[in-house]
Deep mutational scan, measured.
Amino acid sequence: MEVRTIKVFTTVDNINLHTQVVDMSMTYGQQFGPTYLDGADVTKIKPHNSHEGKTFYVLPNDDTLRVEAFEYYHTTDPSFLGRYMSALNHTKKWKYPQVNGLTSIKWADNNCYLATALLTLQQIELKFNPPALQDAYYRARAGEAANFCALILAYCNKTVGELGDVRETMSYLFQHANLDSCKRVLNVVCKTCGQQQTTLKGVEAVMYMGTLSYEQFKKGVQIPCTCGKQATKYLVQQESPFVMMSAPPAQYELKHGTFTCASEYTGNYQCGHYKHITSKETLYCIDGALLTKSSEYKGPITDVFYKENSYTTTIK
């Protein structure tokens, strides 16, 4: 009895394709271990004539594949690729409408935090270190965002349907971005203890939790000093293409032309909904596939993004 075979390709990165001759009487799992086709788990399936010449994702289970996976995804987590594939199996079914010149995501599976993050990423200057993220990001900007969303979920250790947080998501993504040249110098002034300067680099240099107003941050924000008295913390120097200011959701007025974009969060910790506000020729609110415009805006804002380049204080 002759062994019926077909020729397929296996890959971990969709760049390096490895030619395989597979036995049609055995499952993919018996031949390769966990195997995925377009995100779908085909591990328990036997090869079919229609699979001839198709590319299958496999887990990096030998040295060659491990090197290829690390170079593309910059992670050695053995569960990463499987999590990416199972997320992709959902995100490829989502709709990605162009809204006001940006790629958004039609609401499904509690994905409003991903839509808000995706919209924000198209408006701030950011370059990702893992080629996987950078490639998928370019495709997302062009309207094909399924891979990018699935990668975000995998890097953030999230599953489809789980509630997510924009600030946490951005923080994970910033860790995989090139923020080497970003720098922030802060000064804390206390009447009792004097003053202390701190220099922050990388992710810490672009994120701040405690106030939404970048102007206020430049002037000074009140913080408790270690001595128990009130101290003032203010920005001395900022070198970065953008800054992200966050605070627990509270009524906040966004003035046209003073910011790049913002995240609105309605609801409580267990259950809520994100919308995205962007400042173009007027203010726009993007909620999944829905767009509304207004000249002014007041609502429960939790993150505001500002364009920056270089700032030095005039406070002496």
Rank of each mutant, 00 (worst) to 15 (best):
E2G: 15
V3H: 12
R4I: 14
I6N: 06
K7L: 09
V8D: 08
F9M: 13
T11C: 01
D13M: 07
I15Y: 15
L17N: 12
L17I: 14
T19H: 10
T19E: 13
T19D: 12
Q20F: 10
V21Q: 13
V21S: 12
D23L: 11
D23F: 10
D23Y: 14
M24Q: 13
M24C: 10
S25A: 14
T27Y: 11
G29L: 08
G29T: 01
G29P: 08
Q30K: 14
Q30V: 12
Q30H: 13
Q31W: 13
Q31A: 13
Q31G: 11
Q31R: 13
G33M: 03
P34Y: 11
P34S: 12
P34T: 13
D38I: 09
D38W: 11
A40T: 11
D41A: 13
D41Q: 08
T43F: 06
K44R: 11
I45C: 10
K46C: 11
H48Y: 10
S50M: 12
H51V: 07
Y57Q: 07
N61F: 10
N61G: 06
D63I: 03
T64H: 12
R66K: 09
R66W: 05
V67N: 13
E68Q: 10
H74K: 13
T75G: 02
D77E: 09
S79W: 09
F80W: 04
L81A: 12
L81K: 03
G82E: 15
R83F: 04
Y84N: 08
M85G: 09
S86W: 15
S86P: 05
S86V: 13
L88E: 06
L88M: 02
N89C: 12
H90R: 10
T91G: 01
T91A: 07
K92E: 07
K95R: 05
Y96S: 06
Q98C: 14
N100T: 10
G101K: 03
L102M: 14
I105K: 10
K106G: 15
W107D: 07
A108R: 04
N110M: 06
N111K: 06
C112E: 05
Y113F: 02
L114F: 08
T116F: 08
A117C: 11
L119I: 08
L121P: 07
Q122I: 02
Q122R: 04
Q123Y: 05
I124Y: 00
E125Q: 08
L126R: 06
N129V: 07
P130C: 11
P130Q: 00
P131K: 07
P131L: 05
Q134V: 08
D135C: 06
D135I: 07
D135V: 08
A136Q: 07
A136H: 10
Y137M: 15
R141L: 11
G143P: 07
G143L: 04
A145G: 05
A146R: 04
N147F: 02
F148S: 03
C149F: 03
C149Y: 02
L151G: 01
L153M: 08
L153H: 05
L153T: 06
A154R: 08
A154T: 11
C156A: 04
T159V: 09
V160E: 03
E162M: 02
L163H: 03
L163P: 09
G164M: 01
D165V: 04
D165M: 15
R167S: 05
R167M: 07
T169K: 00
T169D: 07
S171G: 11
Y172T: 10
Y172N: 13
L173E: 06
L173T: 10
H176Q: 09
A177Q: 05
N178C: 06
D180P: 05
D180M: 07
S181N: 15
C182Q: 06
L186Y: 15
L186W: 05
N187E: 07
N187V: 10
V188R: 06
V189R: 08
K191D: 13
T192P: 04
Q195N: 12
Q197G: 02
Q197I: 10
Q197V: 12
T198Q: 11
T199C: 06
K201T: 13
K201F: 14
E204M: 11
A205V: 01
A205S: 05
A205F: 01
M207P: 06
M207D: 05
Y208G: 09
T211K: 01
L212R: 02
L212I: 05
L212E: 03
E215L: 05
F217A: 15
G220R: 03
G220N: 02
V221P: 00
V221W: 00
Q222E: 09
Q222V: 10
Q222G: 05
I223L: 09
P224H: 10
T226S: 14
T226H: 12
C227R: 03
Q230P: 12
K233Q: 14
Y234Q: 07
L235N: 00
V236R: 01
Q238I: 01
P241T: 06
P241I: 02
V243I: 11
M244G: 01
M245V: 04
P248G: 14
Q251M: 15
Y252C: 06
L254N: 04
K255W: 07
K255Y: 06
G257E: 08
G257Q: 09
T258G: 09
F259E: 01
C261A: 03
A262L: 00
S263W: 02
E264V: 13
Y265S: 09
Y265G: 00
T266P: 01
N268C: 07
N268E: 06
Y269F: 15
H273T: 05
Y274V: 00
Y274K: 02
Y274L: 10
K275N: 08
H276F: 15
I277Y: 01
T278M: 10
S279A: 10
K280L: 14
K280Y: 10
T282V: 10
L283I: 14
C285M: 08
I286M: 07
I286E: 01
G288F: 07
G288P: 04
A289I: 12
A289W: 03
L290T: 12
L291T: 15
L291C: 12
T292A: 08
T292S: 10
T292F: 11
S295L: 14
S295V: 05
S295I: 07
Y297K: 08
Y297L: 01
K298Q: 15
K298N: 13
P300H: 13
P300L: 09
T302H: 09
T302I: 10
V304W: 04
Y306L: 04
E308V: 10
N309M: 09
N309T: 15
S310A: 14
S310Y: 11
S310K: 06
S310Q: 15
Y311Q: 10
T312P: 11
T312W: 03
I315G: 15
I315P: 15
K316T: 11
